[in-house]
Amino acid sequence: MIVSVASGKGGTGKTLVATSLTVSVENSQLLDCDVEEPNAFLFFPEMRLLDRRECSVTVPQIDEELCVHCGRCSDVCAFNALAVIPSRVVVFPELCHGCGGCLIACPEKAISEVPRRVGWISRARSGDHELVWGELEIGEARSTPLIRDVKRHAKGDTVIVDCPPGVSCSAVESVRDTDFCLLVAEPTPFGLPDLALALKMLERMSIPRGVLINKSGIGDREIYSYLEKRDVPVLMEIPMSREIAELYSRGVIFVERMRGWKERFVNLAERIRGMSG
């Protein structure tokens, strides 16, 4: 079972929930797909790093000996990553999506592909859990190739995917092909519209979902009636608590310190298993 933990709004507690689920479920694996700001590993200070390797995409390289500057490569490039000037071809690697269109279009076979690093993938072990996370290079705009790479590491009975916030490419890539998506939301006026967007995204992707309300007790009750009306189950509530916030601030997973919560997360995982597609 692969469970993604997502939200529209940032800072609602995805990492708090993903790490809590991980330490509660035996032998579970945690994949941190929030590669722009990977945080989950910070909560496992005693982890043992297994390896750290580069994640690369391919970008075109022009053999100027063969190139006749016909301009076909730049004509087919949908991302404006190639510009042909009379004497040479200029490649803008950061705009390239690595589709390979230019290679196919080049009549002179003057284009080859070379790797370009877009980030790093680390693997670590903490007790009976494996952690895998991606870390996007600074200044790099596209996170999806790295997210895909992190997700290729999925293995085992229970895989938990910590997703980036938002509802566009990187969030879509992270929740794609997961069996269930747990949306973490806060019951505030900012939390509701962002949750609604995330629900729409999941509906388009036909992924089964449920909601965990974090910091319950703050804000208002709008979110509850919204979810009830749409028949979206609220699977758990974590109350607003200064104690939890302070533990989080120090990098401590609160279920390790506060009684009864691990059992609740085990039950949550079982319920999700039953609801998974």
């Binding site: 600074i138 705009a141 938002g166």
Partner: peptide, 8 residues
């Protein structure tokens, strides 16, 4: 927006 990628 949060993050470090394209919208940021």
């Amino acid at each position: 927006s949060p993050g470090t990628g394209c919208p940021v």
